[in-house]
Write a protein that binds this DNA or RNA. Structure first.
Lengths: 129, 129
DNA sequence: CTTGAATCTGACATGGATGTCAGCTTCTAC
DNA sequence: GTAGAAGCTGACATCCATGTCAGATTCAAG
């Protein structure tokens, strides 16, 4: 498929897809005319990249991480370097803390939402209709 | 307490604390000379703000949310506007999705970490010593 | 061939919390 | 009073994925 379809299917802008390629996060074949051509595996790959970026890893780290996770990009999954593993453990712990923060934030929001929805109508859902 | 102590105790830079005040996220008394003076409640408040920022809410939204959550800032907790509640529900759902993404990313990292730590030593922890 | 949609490259802009620096004032302890 | 630590304001810089635009090229269909 070409970049437009991949963008549509993965929910990521064409701009970002080109950026990912530039950062070594996404390989693309080229047509004789120079247009990018992606295989099916690209969709999952893009989603993974998107999630990792959202998790706070920068593209450089993701670029080193990707070859170690098999998501059908063709190459056999490599084994992470000792050095990389250490960094990844750090990232994982950071993500764990982030999840904890997010859960707390979500609970705070729920509390405020419930406080506003509870008193008036007392309805279990839907708020003051 | 003054800004230096608050920064130390909350783990947030003085720069950010002044920024929070500018954005209406944190009130501060002033000494006759103009130095900021915080009460004990400020520590929790700053931590909350930090978490909400990490959750992706911008300062404007947090500023509207704060008076609805009682964290001992003195003022009685207000009731969220219908309009605000709608936005908060959107934010909560976004946070929920984000948590899902983070969990997936963490699992990916765990997989890579285990793959690198498992084969060589087979030790349950510590990796290839 | 022609035409319009899709793609290409390269450059500049953006957002938004935070870092950092400069120059000045206030506070604290002696 | 005096010295040094701490605080104040204001301005500019940074990060980095993404948006956006311009001008040129390629692709697909008639």
């Amino acid at each position: 498929m070409r970049i437009g379809e991949l963008a549509r299917r993965s929910g990521v802008s064409e701009r970002s897809l080109r950026y990912y390629e530039q950062q070594g996060l996404l390989r693309a074949e080229r047509t004789p005319g120079g247009h990018r051509e992606y295989g099916e595996w690209a969709v999952d790959r893009v989603v993974h990249v998107q999630e990792l970026l959202a998790a706070g890893l920068n593209s450089a780290k993701i670029a080193r991480l990707l070859p170690c996770m098999r998501d059908g990009d063709g190459g056999p999954s490599e084994i992470a370097t000792q050095r990389l593993v250490e960094e990844l453990v750090g990232e994982r712990d950071r993500i764990d803390r982030m999840i904890g923060d997010l859960v707390r934030s979500r609970d705070v929001l729920d509390e405020v939402i419930d406080a506003a929805s509870g008193p008036p109508g007392r309805g279990p859902r839907g708020g003051p209709a």
